[in-house]
Design a protein around this nucleic acid. Structure first.
Lengths: 199, 199
DNA sequence: GCTATCTTGAAACGGTCGTTCCAAGTACCA
DNA sequence: TGGTACTTGGAACGACCGTTTCAAGATAGC
């Protein structure tokens, strides 16, 4: 017998993701959320709970919508190093041009912010890092099997290295690093992993 | 004929650096500053100006006290790659243990936060990045001259690469990455730059 | 169409934000 | 020692924070 929602929670959450992504959680007030989504405080709190829960929901949505597809594409690609190169190309493209240019990565931003004080946020960040690392590792294992890696290049530790590199790209892109420079840097990194005989 | 300050502005600024470094500017209120430094609002505003100016002063102080010495040590070291390795070792040490463990880097944190909206902050971040890059480049040029680098490894682009890596270390350390894992990752990166014949 | 149950709008909550103001205090110079 | 330029303590400012509350509105089953 109840009334039903007069709005689409998913669309609202997408709007919230953009807010937190661009401005960070500390600089985004509930009033900003109310204004951007068009719905009022009652509906907000009834649907998502308080600000911290809303932020966590936004983080998870960001992961589902942005990280996970990229990770899956990387892990499922059978080409080895070219898959890694394509992953970074797409990353730099999103970070430096289009609607989300200079927004950085919402997850990387969360790592630097004080929002990582929350235990649930920290757990999320830990899981997210592992997923990135695992996807990179899967691609690197394939690269190794195809003889694309220089001798002594272990997929595991190299995946960690490339993950750190991705974080660096995310950070620098938010400050306005240009795509060309980032591409050159990532290209040099991948080349340094390459087996010379395979070139 | 005036009265003189009843406190040490330098010591107060050091305390403020710690606050902004650990909690970020958005999560740190003026009340926190007042409590931590022990001085009152009047003295604060008379000495440093408003919050944004205080934050900028803290950023510059952090750079002078932490970044610059490390950069100078790196750029002045004549050993080449060992200097780079030592730079990263010291970085990881500070980031993962002691008083500042899990605080990350105040400058890297600023890159991710919304505080980079301010034009002066952005200019500061740009300069800081160039100083890091230049110091790394100087060490890499020496490494190249001594035949420590693999063929085709350009000091310039490699400096960019290692700078991104340092940002990654800063970010991950704030979330609680352990020193051993970071050291292994950085070690692998440096090994991938090494000329095989020099080993 | 009545009622039960949820949603919605809007006002209001206490608290904290960054900042300002002013009276009282204090050290230097004449 | 008096005057003066500055510092200091502390109250107060309006604005905004995240959150709660509640009456009015809306829907589905009876």
């Amino acid at each position: 017998m109840p009334d039903i929602k007069h709005f689409d929670p998913d669309a609202a959450l997408d709007t919230v993701v953009r807010l937190f992504w661009r401005q960070g959680v500390a600089m985004t007030g509930i009033q900003d959320v109310v204004t951007a989504t068009g719905l009022n405080r009652s509906s907000l709190y009834a649907t998502f709970g308080g600000k911290q829960e809303l932020y966590l929901a936004a983080l998870r949505r960001y992961q589902e919508q942005w990280s996970r597809p990229a990770f899956r594409g990387l892990a499922d690609d059978r080409r080895g190093l070219p898959a890694v190169a394509e992953f970074f190309d797409a990353l730099i493209e999103v970070r430096c041009s289009g609607e989300y240019a200079r927004w950085g990565c919402m997850v990387s931003n969360a790592q630097a912010g004080a929002e990582n004080g929350d235990a649930e946020v920290r757990a999320f960040l830990h899981r997210h890092h592992e997923e990135l690392r695992d996807a990179l590792c899967a691609a690197l294992v394939r690269a190794e099997a195809q003889g694309q890696l220089a001798a002594g290049t272990e997929p595991g530790v190299t995946a960690d290295l490339l993950a750190l590199l991705a974080y660096g790209v995310n950070l620098r892109s938010r400050t306005g690093a240009d795509a060309g420079s980032l591409r050159a840097t990532v290209g040099a990194a991948l080349r340094s992993l390459t087996s010379r005989t395979a070139e």
